[in-house]
Design a protein around this nucleic acid. Structure first.
Length: 227
DNA sequence: GACCAGGCACATC
DNA sequence: GATGTGCATGGT
């Protein structure tokens, strides 16, 4: 996603450990629990994580709907489906040729490594599974951590463009740091629990979509005091 | 008609 | 390591 210009340039200061928890509480109080991931099953969440790459969620829902209506949203069905047919079904999510490829890669990994069983896949240690996911073509750090957190229920914090934009604008951390730097910052300063990581990331997305876009919105932003 | 959306791989410098 | 580009639909 393209980065918006900062409202003002701020040198990033030292983020105090307790501030992340405070920020989460402010967002949670203002917006309520976000109830992510909006998918019906861990498998749906994993396919959704690939489909949502640089894509509006509403379009992902259409693609998921198509797969469900065709009774094809299962590991076995996607394994035998041809790539052109898959691309046709996921067309509303955009980048359908690339994403069909990525889904097929992921499915063949699921079968070659875990005999098609999510249970076996999720019983693997988080760090080890993460490395394997990152080695797959089309699974980058954000998609890998989304799968780990929202499908496998393992405590890995998902960093996205909103996170960098918002925390960068507030001078809380340096946007040019790497994905790993950002993830480790959040994981270090927060209790490492799935429920907190889950809803905090969802809160950040909600904030990014609804408040941290244009300067006038800052007046009603729950994080105003951090500006 | 431009701009954006819950990224990633690859080329080039 | 940073920067640019292709991938593509659908909503605002």
């Amino acid at each position: 996603m393209k980065s918006l210009k900062p409202f003002r340039s701020l040198a990033s200061r030292h983020l105090r450990p307790e501030e992340l928890g405070t920020i989460y509480r402010l967002l949670r109080n203002a917006f309520g629990h976000q109830h992510w991931w909006p998918g019906e099953s861990p498998f749906e969440v994993m396919i959704g994580a690939i489909l949502t790459q640089n894509t509006a969620w509403a379009n992902v829902e259409k693609a998921i709907r198509n797969l469900k209506d065709a009774h094809q949203l299962t590991p076995q069905a996607l394994r035998v489906m041809t790539k052109p047919k898959l691309a046709r079904l996921i067309r509303p999510a955009g980048y359908f040729n690339i994403k069909a490829d990525r889904i097929k890669h992921f499915i063949s990994f699921l079968f070659s490594e875990y005999r098609g069983s999510l249970k076996r896949m999720f019983s693997e240690k988080g760090e080890s599974l993460r490395q394997k996911l990152l080695a797959l073509k089309g699974i980058g750090p954000e998609t890998a951590d989304s799968i780990l957190l929202y499908a496998a229920q393992k405590p890995f914090f998902v960093i996205d463009a909103y996170t960098r934009r918002i925390f960068g604008r507030h001078g809380l951390y340096d946007p040019s740091k790497t994905y790993e730097d950002w993830r480790i910052l959040f994981e270090k300063f927060l209790p490492r629990t799935v429920g907190l990581f889950n809803d905090f990331h969802a809160q950040i997305v909600y904030l990014g979509k609804n408040f941290c876009k244009t300067k006038p919105q800052c007046a009603s932003c729950p994080l105003q005091r951090f500006l």
